[in-house]
Amino acid sequence: MKTFVLPAFLLVLAVLPGCISPTSYDYEQAALEEMSNYKTFTIDSRETRSNYQDVVLSPIVDRRIERAIQRELTAKGFESVSANPDFRVTFNTVTKTRTEINDFGPPPFRRHPYYGYSGRHLDIDEYEEGTFLINIVDRASKQLVWRGAYVKRLGWSAPDEAEVQKIVSSILAGFPPEQPGG
C-alpha cells in the first residue's frame, strides 16, 4: 500500500499545475443581450491605442496579435469592418515583477556533529509576470463590456505566431459570453 501512495501523490503534484488556467474573463451583465447581437468589429490600430495607453510591444508582435484576433473573431462569425462596427477590440499588456520564496527547511538527516542541524535552505526567485488583456468596447455606449486576460511568466523571447494564436484563442474562447439558460 505504501509503495502506491508515493507515486500517486507525485502524479497529483505533476497534474495539478496543469489544471490552473492562466486565462480569465469578465463581462458586463447588462450588456449580454447587446453582445449576442454583435455582427461586426474593428481592431484599434497601434496609433489609435497609443492615444489612450502606453504601447510597449514591438510593432512586429502587435501585428501578430492583430492577425490572431482577426482570425479568431472571423472564425466565430464576426465580420471586420472599418466603418460603424458593433464593437471595437483593443489589447494591452502589463508586466509586474514577482518574487517567489521557497523555504525548503533544514536538510533531512543532515546533522553536523556538535553543531546541531544545518541552516535553512531558501530559494528566492525574482521574475517578470506578464498579463495580456483583450478588451471589447461597445460602439454605441463606448463602454467596456468584456475583458479577457492571460497571465504568464515572461521569458527572454517574444512569442511567435503560433504562440500568439494559442493565447488569443484561449482568451477569446469566452467571447461572446453565453446567455443564461441558452
Rank of each mutant, 00 (worst) to 15 (best):
K2I: 11
V5G: 06
V5P: 05
A8C: 15
L13I: 11
L16F: 13
P17H: 05
P17F: 06
S21E: 07
P22D: 09
P22M: 08
T23W: 05
Y25Q: 11
Y25T: 09
D26Q: 08
D26L: 04
Y27D: 10
Y27K: 10
E28Q: 13
Q29P: 04
Q29L: 07
A30D: 10
A30L: 08
A30R: 13
A30Y: 03
E33V: 12
E33S: 11
E34G: 03
K39E: 13
D44W: 08
R46T: 13
R49T: 03
N51F: 09
N51T: 12
Y52G: 02
Y52V: 13
Y52I: 10
Q53K: 04
Q53Y: 10
Q53I: 02
Q53P: 00
V55H: 01
L57F: 08
L57S: 08
P59F: 03
I60A: 11
I60G: 06
I60Y: 07
V61F: 02
D62C: 07
R63E: 15
E66K: 15
A68K: 06
I69Y: 09
Q70D: 08
Q70K: 15
A75M: 05
A75Y: 00
K76D: 11
G77H: 07
F78W: 05
E79H: 11
S80Q: 15
N84L: 12
F87Y: 08
R88H: 09
V89A: 09
V89S: 01
T95K: 02
R98S: 09
I101K: 11
N102G: 01
D103M: 05
D103Q: 09
F104E: 14
F104R: 13
G105I: 09
P106K: 13
P108L: 14
P108C: 07
P108I: 15
F109M: 08
R111A: 06
P113A: 11
Y114A: 13
G119R: 07
L122D: 04
L122T: 01
Y127Q: 08
Y127E: 09
E128G: 07
G130C: 06
G130K: 04
T131D: 09
F132R: 02
F132W: 05
F132V: 10
I134L: 03
N135I: 06
N135W: 02
N135A: 14
V137Y: 01
V137K: 01
R139G: 00
R139C: 01
A140K: 04
W146M: 03
R147E: 05
R147L: 02
G148A: 04
A149V: 10
A149L: 10
A149Q: 10
K152E: 13
K152Y: 12
K152C: 02
R153L: 01
L154H: 03
S157E: 13
A158F: 06
D160M: 05
D160C: 07
D160Q: 07
E161A: 13
E163G: 00
V164E: 00
V164R: 00
Q165E: 14
Q165W: 00
K166E: 11
K166G: 04
V168L: 04
S169P: 05
S170C: 04
S170Y: 01
I171P: 00
L172A: 00
G174P: 04
P176Q: 01
P176K: 02
E178N: 08
E178V: 12
P180C: 09
G181N: 12
